[in-house]
Design a binder for these strands. Structure first.
Lengths: 339, 339
DNA sequence: GTGAAAGCGCTAACAA
DNA sequence: TTGTTAGCGCTTTCAC
C-alpha cells in the first residue's frame, strides 16, 4: 500500500506559502486574493491533491457523514427511503453510512454507539420493532448529534419525526373493503408491541365500529407476519365456521403471501375474499390479481427526513415535531368493486 | 449543541496516569497490567467514554469505513448486495458508506473522489453502464485504497472481481426455451455498450446457433430496458410477420413488464409466448404467470466482495482475480414445459 | 508496565 | 491578505 497522499503542506512548500493559506484558498474563504486562490487551486490539481476529510473533520470537530439506521436495507420501503436520503445528502456534500438492525435492539444499540464514535453529523433512524427503551438514542442528543426518526418513531424522543398516519391508512383500507361490500372483515396484523401495527389495528377496529360491522372471533390477529404466520392464520380462517370475505393485511409481504395462498386454494379474489395490504411494492402490481395497497411514500420520507436533519445539523432549526406524510390507497384487482 | 465528549485525557486526568496508558488499555495492547486495564475500562464506562474514531483514524491513517458504489440502492439486486456487505462488515467492526451513481459516470467520478477524501479503508463498486474510462478508480489504487468490483466490472483494473457468468446464464435460459419447444426466439437486450449485456446477447446468439435455431430480423435488440423500450419492442414484435414464441429478457424489471404486456394483450404465456428473464426478484414469484429467471446471488456476492476486500485491507492477499458465482435458472410458469 | 512527546493533516484564532 | 501557532483526540515510538 503506497499511501502517498499529497497534503496541504506539500502544496505550501512548493508555493512557498503557509499551509493556512492553502486551506483558506481551497475552502474559498473570503480573506484571500483571487490570485493566490487561483495559484493554489492550480498547484493542487497539478499534484493531485484531495482533501483529507478525516483530518478536516477532527479539526472542525464535525464530519460530513450522516448515519442511517434501519431494520433491513433490502426491504423495498427502506431501500426507497435510503435512496431519497442519499439523493439529498449527495447534493449537500454529505455521505451516508448505513447499518441494519435486523430488528435486534442489541444491534441497534451497538450501531448507535458506533455512529457516536464516528462522530456522525446526524442520525436518521427507524426503530426496530423491539425497541422500547431509547436511552441509546438519547445519548446521541447528549453528544450534540441531531436525530430524525421515521416510520417507527418514539414520541419520548425530543426530535423531528417523519411518519405516516397508520391509523388513517388502515381506516381508509378497511372502509374501502366495507364500501365494496365486505361484511366479514379480518385483520392480519403485525407485532402488537410495535406502535405502527397497533395503530393499523386500531384503524381497522375503528372502521368496523363506525360502519357497524361485526368483529368475529379470531378476526383481529397480531402476528410476526412471517410466512408461517400467514399460512397458519389463513388455514385457520378458511376452516373456521365464519370465513372472512375481506382481509386487511398489515404488511406488504404478508399481503402478497396471503393473496397467493388464497388463489392457490381456489378462492376467488376479490369475489370471495377481497384483500388490501398496508405498504406497496412492485410485486403488488404484478401479482394476480394485482394487490390493492396503502402506499407509503418512502423516497419522499427519506428526502424530508434528511432535509430536516440538515436544519438541525446546520443550526437552522432543531425543534421537535412530527411530519405526517400523506398515504394513498391504491385500488387494484384484489379489491375491485363488486356490486 | 452541547458536544461535551469525554476524551482519553479526561480519563487519564481522573486516574492520574498518562493518556497513552488509557489508549493502550482500551485497545487491549499487550504491554499493560491487567489491573490498570480493568481500572481504565471501569472509569471509561463510568464517564461514558466513546472512542473518537475520527481522531483514531487520523492517527492511524486508516478508517474503518468501506465505500460502496453502485447504480441504484433501490433495485432488488443491489439492495441484496448491500445487505450482504453490511452483514460481514458489521461483524468486522467496519461501517459502510454507500453512494448511488444513477448510472452517471460524472457522479461515479465525484463519489470516488469523495471516498478518496474520506480515506475509506476500501471500495466495493459496480460500475455504471456508461463507465468506459476507469482512471478515477485507478487513482484509488494509487492512494493505497483497495478496490473490489462486482457484477459490472472492468478487466483493465487490477483488483478482485466478483461476477456471474452472463454468457452462461443467457445460454442456459435460451437453451431452456429451445428445450420446451420454442422455435422463434427473440432477445430483449440491454444497453449494448455495457459488457454484461453484450455477454447476455452473446449467450443468446450462441444458444441459437448451437441448436440451429434461426435468428429472425429484429429478434436481437439492444435497448435501455425502460418501460417505453419494452412497450415499443413488444408491439413491434406482435405486429411483425414473424412473431416470437419465446423471449429472453436481459433484465428482471423488463421481464416483468413484458410478461404483463403479453398477458394484457391476450397472449397466452407460455403457450404462445414463453418468457425467461435475467435476474430474479420477488415479483417474479407473484406475477401471473410466474416468471422464470436466471437468479443472481446478490447477497452472496456482497459477502464475497467484502471478504475479499478485507483480505486486501488487512494485507493478507491483494492480488487480482475473478470469482464467478454460480447462476441458477429458476423455471416458473412463464416457461413451463409444453408438449 | 508506564510516561513523555511527537505527530497524523487540517482549521482557526491571533498577529503581522 | 498572509504567516504563525496552537490545537482537534488519538496512537506510537522512545525512554525510563
Amino acid at each position: 500500500m503506497p499511501v502517498s497522499n499529497v497534503t496541504i503542506n506539500d502544496i505550501a512548500r512548493e508555493l512557498k506559502v503557509a499551509p493556512s493559506t492553502i486551506s483558506r484558498a481551497l475552502n474559498n474563504k473570503s480573506q484571500i486574493s483571487e490570485k493566490t486562490k487561483k495559484l493554489v487551486r492550480q498547484k493542487a490539481a497539478e499534484l493531485g491533491y484531495d482533501i483529507n476529510l478525516v483530518a478536516s473533520s477532527l479539526s472542525k470537530n464535525k464530519t460530513n457523514i450522516i448515519g442511517v439506521l434501519l431494520p433491513n436495507i433490502n426491504r423495498y420501503f427502506f431501500s426507497q427511503v435510503v435512496s431519497g436520503i442519499e439523493s439529498v445528502a449527495y447534493d449537500k456534500g454529505y455521505q451516508i453510512i448505513i447499518a441494519q438492525t435486523n430488528e435486534s435492539l442489541e444491534r441497534e444499540i451497538e450501531v448507535t454507539r458506533m455512529f457516536n464514535s464516528t462522530r456522525v453529523a446526524g442520525v436518521i433512524a427507524c426503530l426496530s420493532v423491539k425497541t422500547t427503551d431509547v436511552s441509546h438514542l438519547e445519548k446521541l442528543k447528549k453528544n450534540g448529534i441531531p436525530l430524525v426518526l421515521f416510520d417507527r418513531v418514539d414520541y419520548s424522543l425530543d426530535c423531528q419525526k417523519i411518519i405516516v398516519d397508520n391509523f388513517d391508512g388502515a381506516f381508509q383500507a378497511v372502509s374501502h373493503l366495507i364500501k365494496i361490500g365486505c361484511k366479514k372483515i379480518a385483520h392480519l396484523g403485525g407485532p402488537s408491541d410495535c406502535k405502527v401495527f397497533q395503530e393499523r389495528a386500531r384503524g381497522f377496529s375503528e372502521a368496523l365500529e363506525i360502519h357497524k360491522i361485526q368483529l368475529w372471533p379470531n378476526f383481529l390477529l397480531a402476528t410476526d407476519l412471517t410466512h408461517e404466520d400467514v399460512r397458519g392464520v389463513f388455514s385457520m380462517w378458511m376452516t373456521a365456521p365464519q370465513k372472512p370475505d375481506g382481509v386487511f393485511v398489515a404488511g406488504s409481504d404478508a399481503g402478497l403471501m396471503l393473496t397467493k395462498m388464497a388463489v392457490e386454494a381456489g378462492i376467488k379474489v376479490p369475489d370471495e375474499l377481497a384483500i388490501v395490504a398496508f405498504g406497496d411494492e412492485p410485486a403488488n402490481e404484478y401479482i394476480c390479481p394485482s394487490l390493492s395497497a396503502v402506499e407509503m411514500p418512502g423516497y419522499d420520507m427519506g428526502r424530508t427526513a434528511v432535509s430536516q436533519l440538515f436544519d438541525a445539523v446546520e443550526g437552522r432549526y432543531a425543534g421537535s415535531g412530527t411530519t405526517v406524510k400523506p398515504l394513498q390507497l391504491i385500488v387494484r384487482r384484489s379489491s375491485f368493486k363488486r356490486e
